[in-house]
């Protein structure tokens, strides 16, 4: 086995680290856990670690992934069960390794394979009934336009094709909770964009990634690594 896929969660204070920070944290955690990572050849050797979709700074998640290439000279096989425990011990508080499994040699990269994400979105600006209405109106439309700044100019995107599913789960103390599945192709739509596209728009309180999905033939989909016992409702955002 030369590649290992690892699923991890990110909760609490550590969610304020950036995608680049997380990459650095993983490089060091792997070294602390004495995992023999393969390095690129050349002038400036880098560990061969590939991350999937970036998680925005401040968002939490139960479905983050990375693929690690192992050094074939040093690793005969890897005990994934012990690996999960060893990695969690090496990670900062709030980051937990949830699962690990070897990858088939030609398994496509996360960046390439993942097609959608399920989000739990806490928002302010409406109660559950009002939010359900505006969400229903949005889903009934043929296009949902959002504006975003790219390289200094304003672009208008239609995100409607990427809103694969969305529903209001209910009221929470400071607003309303939504569950939405948002596509990642051609680009990943972000929870605040969904909220901004509603009429009236809602404002984001918290966003939590519950799942990443790989669609195989349009109907079938699976997670890059399933975690059976993971409680969706209980996966909190509190520190």
């Amino acid at each position: 086995m030369s590649r290992v896929r690892i699923r991890f969660s990110k909760h609490g204070k550590v969610r304020f680290t950036s995608h680049r920070d997380v990459a650095r944290i993983w490089e060091r955690a792997l070294r602390r856990a004495r995992v023999a990572v393969a390095y690129s050849a050349g002038f400036n050797p880098r560990p061969k670690i590939a991350f999937g979709l970036a998680l925005s700074t401040g968002f939490s998640s139960d479905a983050e992934y990375l693929d690690v290439e192992l050094d074939p000279d040093q690793v005969a096989g890897i005990d994934t069960e012990n690996l999960v425990a060893a990695l969690t011990a090496s990670l900062p508080a709030g980051m937990t390794a949830l699962a690990a499994a070897g990858l088939a040699p030609r398994e496509p990269s996360l960046q390439h394979a993942v097609t959608s994400c399920t989000w739990r979105i806490d928002a302010a600006g409406a109660d559950a009934v009002e939010a359900s209405d505006s969400l229903a109106r949005a889903m009934a439309r043929s296009e949902l336009l959002v504006q975003r700044e790219r390289k200094g100019r304003l672009d208008t995107d239609d995100i409607r094709p990427s809103v694969l599913a969305a529903e209001v789960q209910g009221n929470i103390t400071d607003g309303v909770r939504l569950i939405a599945e948002l596509g990642t192709k051609p680009r990943a739509v972000r929870p605040p964009e969904l909220l901004a596209s509603l009429d009236p728009p809602l404002s984001l309180l918290r966003a939590h990634r519950l799942h990443q999905w790989i669609a195989t033939d349009g109907l079938q989909r699976h997670e890059p690594l399933a975690v059976a016992e993971l409680s969706v409702a209980g996966a909190g955002v509190a520190p």
């Binding site: 550590v14 680290t17 950036s18 401040g58 900062p92 508080a93």
Partner: peptide, 11 residues
């Protein structure tokens, strides 16, 4: 900007 500088939690 850079909120991670206020969270502590260093190894």
């Amino acid at each position: 900007s850079k909120p991670a500088r206020y969270i502590g939690g260093e190894h």
